[in-house]
Write a protein that binds this DNA or RNA. Structure first.
Lengths: 149, 149
DNA sequence: GTGGTTGCAAACCCTTTGCACGGCA
DNA sequence: TGCCGTGCAAAGGGTTTGCAACCAC
């Protein structure tokens, strides 16, 4: 399961990156923890099987992966970064209560937005990407969401 | 010009906050620097007329103003906070080249989004707020944008 | 072999906090 | 006078950096 180690290796090689255990472990962590983990969550996950990894290394690897477009950063309301293994453009659902972030992909919506802005161009601004930041709360909670009120 | 000091005083009083020179200066800075200034930009602006202000104070005042909904925080791709004097729900244009952030208010768009999500509810998720994060670049640059193509 | 990677620890930077002083209601 | 607000300086916490040792190619 997971994206399999081999697939991860292929992706690294395709980008001309050296295939190292640390890089594999970090990518595997991001794909497995598919809740947009923070650097700390990634380290915690990795240390179960790879206790020796240094936090500086994790940050450096994350930078390299972002630079080569294997992952992306997600901004949250707090001041910590989180990382996303999905590359296609997509939107995010934020549940501030539980600090969960979920992906939201929807082509129909993207089409609507695209059409809208084609007909209503913003003066002096060239749009490169539009992301919805959908805040709210998850109902029918999975256990990691505090279900207050 | 600007929101006039008196209006600022009124707003503070309406919220039951003590009217102090620091709070007035900070609010005035945010309204004047209407490019969603960072704490540092606010301090720099204020120090021209009020050199003695402490950075701790600025942060504390900003927290109080947010708490009482006189301003709001804006998250950027970088890890520094920026502050917004507009209270109504609105969207943001981000120009990463120049670190500019502009407001984008558009009721028609909001209506479209509202309708869309009424007809396409997201399973197990209650939407509280939707914000568009529109990334791109400003054309026809104003001088504070570095116009590297 | 050798240049890119890693580990480690210190540095960084923005932000927060604690506490004593000061000033407005 | 009482309490909230301010100034100052130190602490905090996530992230970055410098450099020597290492290892994937």
């Amino acid at each position: 399961m997971a994206a399999t180690i081999n697939k991860i290796k292929d992706r690294l090689m395709e980008k001309g990156l050296k295939v190292t255990p640390q890089r594999i472990a970090i990518l595997e962590a991001i794909y497995s923890l598919n809740n947009h983990p923070s650097a700390e969550m990634i380290m915690e996950y990795i240390r179960e099987t790879y206790p020796g990894i240094a936090s500086g290394t994790v940050y450096k690897v994350l930078d390299v992966l972002i630079e080569h477009q294997l992952i992306d950063r997600v901004k949250t309301d707090k001041d910590i970064m989180r990382y996303d293994g999905i590359l296609e453009d997509h939107h995010h659902l934020y549940a501030s209560e539980s600090a969960e972030i979920k992906d939201y992909l929807n082509e129909e919506l993207d089409e609507i937005l695209k059409n809208y802005f084609q007909q209503n161009a913003i003066e002096d601004f060239e749009i490169q990407r539009i992301r919805l930041q959908i805040n709210g709360r998850f109902l029918n909670n999975r256990k990691n969401g505090k279900s207050r009120s």
